[in-house]
Design a protein around this nucleic acid. Sequence first.
DNA 1: CATAAAAGATACCGCTTAGTATTTTTGTAA
DNA 2: TTACAAAAATACTAAGCGGTATCTTTTATG
Lengths: 196, 196
Amino acid sequence: MKKAEATRLNILHKAFELIYVKGYQTTSIDDIIATTQVTKGAFYYHFKNKDNMGLAIVNEILKPIFVNSFVKPLQNEKNPLDAIYNLMYNLLMENEFLKVEFGCPAANFTQEMTPWNVHFSKVLNELTKEWIETMTYSIEEGKKREFVRNDVNARQTSMFVMSGYWGIRNFGKLENSKKAYLPYLKELKNYLNTLK
Amino acid sequence: MKKAEATRLNILHKAFELIYVKGYQTTSIDDIIATTQVTKGAFYYHFKNKDNMGLAIVNEILKPIFVNSFVKPLQNEKNPLDAIYNLMYNLLMENEFLKVEFGCPAANFTQEMTPWNVHFSKVLNELTKEWIETMTYSIEEGKKREFVRNDVNARQTSMFVMSGYWGIRNFGKLENSKKAYLPYLKELKNYLNTLK
DNA sequence: CATAAAAGATACCGCTTAGTATTTTTGTAA
DNA sequence: TTACAAAAATACTAAGCGGTATCTTTTATG
C-alpha cells in the first residue's frame, strides 16, 4: 500500500472512531487532524470537505463492517431463526467493535445526518435494505426447508427484527449496560420460536 | 400567567420544535432567539446556559407529552395487548405531533446527548423507565384477567415492544415515509397475538 | 541525478458559536 | 409618583468552526 493511501485510510479509521464516540457534527476537523497527527493540508488533499470524508467513512469503513457483521452471518445458514438469534446475540453481547455506550454506528449516522444530507440517507438506506433483503431471503429459504411456518411474512418479520435491534441499541446507550440486552434477547428468542 | 413566564415557555416550545427538527447540537442559541423574537439578554435571563434550557425542555415539554401520549393510554385499559397495539398505531400513524421524518424526540435526545451530559441521560432514563413500568404493570394485570398467557414475562415483553418502537421510528426517518410503519405494525400484532 | 507531480505543512480568513457585561425598559407595590 | 427589582435589550468577547492559499517536502520516473 502506498503511503498516501495509508494516510487516507488512517484518517478514515480514526475519524470513524471519533464520530462513533462523539457524533458527526460534534467531531471537528481539528479533532480529527489532532488524533491522526495529520495536518490540515494533508486532510484537504485527500478530502474535498467534511461531508465528503463522512460519506467515505460510510462507504469504505461502515459498509464493509456492516456486510461482514450483519449480512454475511445470515447467508448460507440453514435455519434462519437460529441464524438471526445467533447474529443478534453476537452483535449485542460479543462483538468487540460495537460498544454498548455508543450504540449502533449506522443508527447514529441515520439519526444525525438524515435531516441534513440526502447523500447520507441514500447510502444508509441502501445498507439497511441489503440487510432486510438478506434476512427476508434467508427466511424464505427457511420456509422451503420447513424451519419456518409457511404463513410467516418474511419481509415483515425482518423489519420487525431490525427495528428491535436498533431500538435496543439506543436503550443500551441510555442504560450504559449490556444488561439491558438480556431481556430483549430472551424475548427475541420467544418471538422467533413462534415462527417455527 | 405572567408575561415573563410566557416568554420562558415560548422559548421552550419554539426551541423544542427546532431541536426536534434539527437536533440539539446543531440548533444554536442564535437560531432560537431568532425564531422566538427574543433577545439574548432575555434568553440568558431565563436560562443559565444552553444545557440548562435543554434540560428544562425535557422536563417541562417532553415529559408531559410523553406521559400523556405514551403512559396514560396504557393505564386503566382492560386488555393490555389491545392497548399496546392501539397505542403504537396511534403514535406511529395518527399522532399529529410526531413526524415520521424527525423520528422520536426522546430517542433523538438519547442518542445525541447520552455521551455528553449525564443529566440528560438520567432524566431520559426515568422517562423510559416510567413507560416500561407502566407497560409491565398493565401486562401483569392482563394476566390476572386472562387476557395474557401466564408464562409471559411482562418486563421482557415491554422492553421488546419499546425497542421495536424506537427502532421503527429511526427506520421511518431514513425512509421518510409512514409506509415503513405498516409491516412493523402488522408483525407487532402477530407478536402480541402469540401472548394471548 | 534532474525534474515534476504528488503529498503534506503552515498560516490565515471569514464566520459562527456560547456566553458575558452593561445598560435600558417594564411592572408593581408603597 | 416614586422606588426598585424583574425582565429584556444591546454590544461585545474569546474560542471554535470549516475551508483556502501558499509554501515545502517527498516520491516516482525519465
